[in-house]
Design a protein around this nucleic acid. Structure first.
Length: 206
DNA sequence: CAAACGATCGGCT
DNA sequence: GCCGATCGTTTGC
């Protein structure tokens, strides 16, 4: 297992980082238990010009302060009062870029994920239900035990309980599809930008 | 201090 | 496809 290092996250090109995250493995290790999933769908958010980004026009608020940190930490926030959405902060310090992880394919700790989601055990799930376990940003965050109180956590520190690793899966350009981001209609013209990327052949995509 | 607003999900028609 | 749930954050008065 090779945990991604700060070099990966500090790059200024968040669209490149977003695509490079596809095929990497998001791992959490809480209370001695690991859960992990291959990242299958992401969206890029880029201050200052991106109206859909919480740090639009580089405005700093208590919530978005972590987005301005050097790349390599988590930005987790509560959406619709119910869902904890997990983002990876990228770019150098002062540059508020982030990648929203929208879906993963479970590869480790499936039964704990099911427990956290209130599902029956993994082996008892229909194919559809297996996909629903970790498809969608709120769903995967719940499955992996991610919560707003972890916002700001490092993904690169040796002692951190959450990180992203490269397990050697290589995607060619043809394996990546792109389209407009979801749920950002309020962002005017920015809503048309094709900053959502997914693994073309994965069933773990909306 | 009040009020509006979501980077969504799941259940139901 | 439509709709309600639910609450922290932000903004405006």
């Amino acid at each position: 297992m090779t945990r991604l290092t700060t070099d990966f996250y500090l790059r200024d090109d968040v669209l490149a980082v977003a695509q490079d995250l596809l095929g990497k493995v998001l791992v959490t290790h809480f209370d001695g238990q690991r859960t992990a999933g291959v990242i299958t769908e992401v969206e890029a958010y880029r201050a200052p010009e991106d109206r859909a980004c919480h740090a639009y026009q580089n405005r700093r608020t208590p919530r978005t302060e972590v987005m301005f940190r050097p790349g390599g930490c988590a930005y987790i926030y509560l959406c619709y009062g119910l869902h904890h959405l997990f983002n990876v902060v990228t770019g150098p310090e002062g540059v508020a870029h982030a990648v929203l992880i929208r879906a993963v394919e479970p590869v480790e700790g499936q039964n704990l994920m099911c427990q956290r989601r209130g599902y029956a055990p993994w082996e008892d799930l229909s194919p559809r239900k297996k996909v629903a376990l970790t498809t969608g940003p709120g769903a995967l965050a719940q499955a992996l035990g991610l919560h707003t109180h972890q916002s700001g956590q490092s993904l690169t520190d040796r002692r951190s309980p959450m990180w992203i690793e490269d397990q050697g899966l290589h995607l060619s350009k043809a394996d990546i599809a792109r389209g407009p981001r979801i749920g950002v209609d309020y962002a005017g013209e920015c809503a048309l930008w094709e900053w959502r990327f997914w693994m073309r052949h994965s069933p773990y995509v909306r």
